[in-house]
């Protein structure tokens, strides 16, 4: 289903790139999300002081609250992974919320974006595992009994691939479904503000999906840090 009107596609049309921008809306809108996030980061860090004021207060509560939450799951070793996790959370949140603004397209409603995020999150959890356990990390994949290694290895590999796919499809499916429902309701009864209740629910969905993505990435990192079973 085609989006009726995309703002950034018209903006790129000024530079003669309309065809490319129309076929890659997730790329252009991801840049927009990045610009928004960099702007907020600049805003928060502009006048940093020991006694926080207005904007710095909000960001400090958000960032340090999430940090304590992550550390309560992963233990003290997980603090090093926190910058990646909070970046994923904020990016997915901004990406999801962009779907609620007319003429914007949520970059997370494309399977390309979510697959990239899921690969980064799960890949990083393995890097943390190797970093933490060294060569012994392979024990996570071999099961408890040496005799059953040929059985356990493929099973564990399948289970770890399923993590990537479940992260990918949960976020993609939710955001794409939301976008589709809003578009269909807009087409059927746009004059009577039919999509409004769904958009109100979209705020909740955006927040929950961003949090679930962040939470599951944290738990995969926690699973890589803990000892093999």
């Amino acid at each position: 289903m085609e989006h009726p009107y995309l703002l950034l596609t018209s903006v790129f049309g000024v530079f003669g790139l309309e065809e490319w921008a129309a076929s890659h809306p997730h790329v252009t809108y991801m840049w927009l999300a990045m610009i928004i996030l960099i702007f907020f980061g600049w805003l928060a860090g502009k006048s940093i002081s020991l006694v926080p004021e207005t904007a710095q207060n909000v960001f400090e509560v958000l960032i340090s609250g999430m940090e304590e939450f992550v550390v309560s799951i992963t233990g003290e070793e997980g603090r090093k992974s926190y910058p990646l996790l909070i970046t994923i959370f904020l990016f997915v949140l901004v990406g999801n919320l962009m779907g609620l603004v007319p003429s914007l397209y949520p970059p997370t409603a494309s399977v390309n974006t979510t697959m990239a995020l899921a690969l980064i999150a799960v890949g990083w959890s393995h890097v943390v595992g190797i970093w933490h356990h060294g060569f012994k990390y392979i024990k996570h994949f071999l099961g408890p009994v040496p005799l059953m290694i040929p059985l356990f290895l493929p099973i564990e590999l399948i289970a770890h691939t399923a993590r990537v796919l479940s992260l990918t499809f949960r976020l993609f499916g939710n955001m794409m479904g939301h976008e589709l429902v809003v578009l269909i309701l807009l087409m059927l009864g746009g004059m009577f503000l039919a999509p409004l209740p769904v958009m109100a629910m979209g705020v909740f969905v955006a927040l929950v999906q961003a949090f679930v993505f962040f939470l599951l990435s944290t738990m995969y990192i926690a699973g890589a840090i803990e000892e093999a079973h």
Binding site: A159, A162, R163, S166, F169, F211, V212, L215, L216, M219
Partner: peptide, 10 residues
């Protein structure tokens, strides 16, 4: 909640 809700899909 997050962990067990993601179980069915996996």
């Amino acid at each position: 909640l997050g962990y067990f809700a993601s179980l069915g899909m996996s």
